[in-house]
């Protein structure tokens, strides 16, 4: 009692962290957002995790199976195949569009094409159209008597013509090609924005130093759009991994199982087959994978920055 030293009322708390560290009141500021986030994102996610531990048909009482659903998804070949397909789609939705987009954007910037806005709009258009519409259109293009085969026959490549979506070797690639068509425009627009920040003088300086177009591209353009590249990669990668509409409308996962993707599997298991637990588990693993990829991409772009 005697050696009690009167303390200033708030000193203890202030000492806990460096000055400027958020105080508890900060939680009040973020409370509205946190509430919405918690209610509409976190709760469903946790609910999904809970469902993934059960074998449940959506109707009767579920049975606890622990991690069996996860084991099944990781070991069952029929469930692993869709993930392999999704990885293939990343090449078409992400890597090719980013590469194409970079090349197109730097070409447009360099040559100062007349009517850039027009081209930009046309290239971006696929992003605006609903994917179901895109899928219906492309399904007709790939049809046995569709425009693609008509074209091939006209130029004398009739032997190559086939029912593209009905061929196990090509169905997934066809979906990938639609992905290129959809995603390239987004990449171009993003990169154009990035390149427009680069001062013209920088290019002139490089040219005076004797740099050719390729040198310019590698030393000036690419580093300048690093941030945009990260954004483009993230967006297109997510688009690739969660592809559903294209597959649902164009091939319904076929022929055979050659174009089934994880999102299609989620829908099929949970809604059609009454295997809610397995479906949700596939969705969670997909979510985790997407999260990992985006974190990796962000890390890479940050570490390259410093």
């Amino acid at each position: 009692m005697a050696d009690t030293v009167p303390q200033p009322p708030r000193a203890g708390r202030r000492q806990a962290g460096p000055p400027g560290e958020p105080r508890r009141i900060a939680y009040l500021y973020i409370a509205p957002a946190l509430l919405v986030f918690g209610l509409f994102f976190l709760t469903p996610l946790l609910h999904a995790v809970w469902l993934s531990l059960y074998e449940w048909d959506g109707l009767s009482v579920g049975t606890w199976v622990g991690l069996d659903n996860y084991r099944l998804v990781l070991t069952d070949e029929a469930l692993r195949e869709p993930f392999v397909h999704a990885l293939t789609l990343i090449v078409f939705f992400s890597i090719i569009p980013c590469a194409l987009g970079l090349a197109l954007a730097s070409m447009i910037t360099r040559s100062a094409v007349r009517g850039v806005n027009f081209f930009r709009t046309v290239l971006f258009l696929p992003q605006v159209v609903a994917l179901v519409v895109v899928a219906v259109a492309w399904r007709q293009i790939f049809a046995p008597d569709g425009p693609l085969n008509d074209f091939l026959r006209t130029v004398g490549l009739g032997d190559v013509a086939r029912g593209w979506l009905g061929d196990e070797r090509y169905a997934l690639i066809c979906i990938g090609i639609v992905g290129i068509w959809v995603c390239t425009g987004l990449c171009v627009v993003l990169f154009l924005a990035g390149l427009s920040k680069v001062p013209r003088e920088l290019y002139e300086a490089a040219r005076l130093d004797g740099a050719g177009p390729i040198r310019e591209f590698i030393t000036i353009s690419v580093p300048a759009v690093r941030g945009e590249l990260a954004v483009a990669l993230t967006l297109t990668l997510v688009a690739a991994m969660r592809t559903f509409d294209l597959v649902y409308v164009m091939t319904s996962g076929g022929p055979g199982t050659s174009s089934r993707v994880p999102a299609y599997e989620v829908w099929d298991r949970a809604i059609n087959k009454g295997q809610v637990g397995v479906g949700v588990t596939v969705a969670l693993i997909l979510t985790a994978f997407i999260l990992l990829c985006t974190v990796l991409i962000n890390r890479l772009s940050e570490s390259a920055d410093s």
Binding site: F142, L165, P255
Partner: peptide
């Protein structure tokens, strides 16, 4: 059957 029936809706 129709030619390329697997590719025809």
């Amino acid at each position: 059957f129709t030619k390329d029936f697997n590719g025809l809706g």
